[in-house]
Simulated scan of single mutants.
Amino acid sequence: MLNQTQSKKITLAATGDILLHKRLYKKAKKRLKGGYNFDEMLSEAKPLFENGGDITIVNQESIIAGEEIGLSDYPRFNSPIEIGYLLKDFGVDIANLANNHILDKGEEGIIKSIENWNEIGIPYVGAYNSQEDQETPRIIEKNGLSVCFLSYTKRMAGMKIPKDKSYLVNTFEDTKVGNIRKEINAIKKSHKVDVFVVSVHFGKEYHLLPTSAQKEISASISDAGADIILGHHPHVLQPPEYILNSRGLRTFSAYSLGNFFSGQKGLYRQIGAFMTVDIEKPSESNPVLKIDNPAMKLTFVDSTDKENYKLYLLEDIVKEREFIKTHMGNFNSKEVYEEIKTHLTRWIPDMTIS
């Protein structure tokens, strides 16, 4: 049993978007008659999940309501259930659901998707099937630390949440994050929480740097009590940074974790990351968290032809190929590798990128 003076430490792992375009699940169907098998396409990712962190969260950008209500991709996504079972096999601890595609199949899609997450056995956050579900904090205990996960989306792709069912999706408007602050404060009063991790769906698609609104929102969420911010929506990796807030505390903000596994084409849309960060609570008498050692293991979803769409480690691509082929042309692999590492360490120069 940990005592009052003993340090408590975990490593949090996180990925960007898992967004299953038709070209991905069509290939997966070829590998399993009567179902979908993503094992080979994501075989290189499995060791990352198995060795990466004490708690792992993924951003499941597309609902997994399955064939029962019809699979589909852009602009209204619905994915095979099997991707969830693979994530369970990988050891994923929680799935983030609040995003601009969560209502792509309406209330029916959310409810069916949540039924599937429950059947798979992976907790979820950001979308809910009832008021009670929404009001139940997502807290994971590990190594003596209580980690609470919250999730919100700013955009809904033009879809409207039913007025009498606002619990379906956690949202916020513009740069106003008062509801996030209220939720954090309410949870603090009713539960012992050491760490707050807030996933946020915001920003501009394909922008390699966070917008001023992203920075403003993140600063407000930091001041509201978030210790770690995990950003999604731009579909490209943006450089993270530490935010010093008015309480004198630091928040680690990963403004965008980009795409992890998707069918999008475009050099930086195909580069993703498996990110880890260490969280330490020195002692009960000194509860100020130490959040350090951020690291990213870069990945690349190869789409050189329509039969591929396999995830590789970017460092392996660089070792094996002089050029990275995309639909826009060929790019020198070493130059791309160095460029993305320089880009991602813009505000945290000593961050490990590999």
Rank of each mutant, 00 (worst) to 15 (best):
Q6I: 00
L19S: 08
A28D: 04
K29T: 00
G35S: 14
N37V: 02
M41R: 02
S43C: 07
K46F: 12
G52L: 01
G53C: 08
D54P: 00
D54T: 04
T56C: 05
I57V: 14
I57P: 00
V58M: 09
Q60F: 06
E61T: 04
E61N: 04
E61Y: 11
Y85F: 14
G91S: 08
D93I: 02
I94Q: 06
I102P: 01
L103D: 11
D104W: 07
K105H: 13
E108Q: 12
I111G: 00
G121N: 10
Y124G: 00
V125I: 15
V125R: 06
E132I: 09
T136L: 07
P137W: 14
I140F: 10
N143R: 11
G144A: 04
K154N: 09
R155D: 04
M159V: 03
K160P: 00
P162E: 07
P162I: 05
N170S: 15
F172W: 11
D174C: 05
T175G: 03
I180D: 05
H191I: 04
K192F: 15
V193G: 09
D194C: 04
F196C: 06
V197P: 02
L208R: 15
P210M: 13
E216K: 15
S220A: 15
D227I: 03
I229S: 10
H232F: 14
H232N: 13
L237Q: 07
L244K: 14
G248H: 11
G258S: 08
G263A: 09
G266Q: 03
Y268R: 09
I271S: 06
E280M: 10
P282F: 11
S283H: 12
S283I: 10
S283N: 08
E284H: 08
N293W: 03
A295D: 00
V301N: 04
S303V: 05
E307A: 04
N308E: 12
K310E: 10
K310Y: 11
L311G: 02
Y312L: 01
Y312C: 02
L313H: 13
L314K: 08
D316E: 15
I317R: 07
I317S: 06
F323S: 03
I324L: 03
K325W: 03
H327R: 00
H327K: 00
W347E: 12
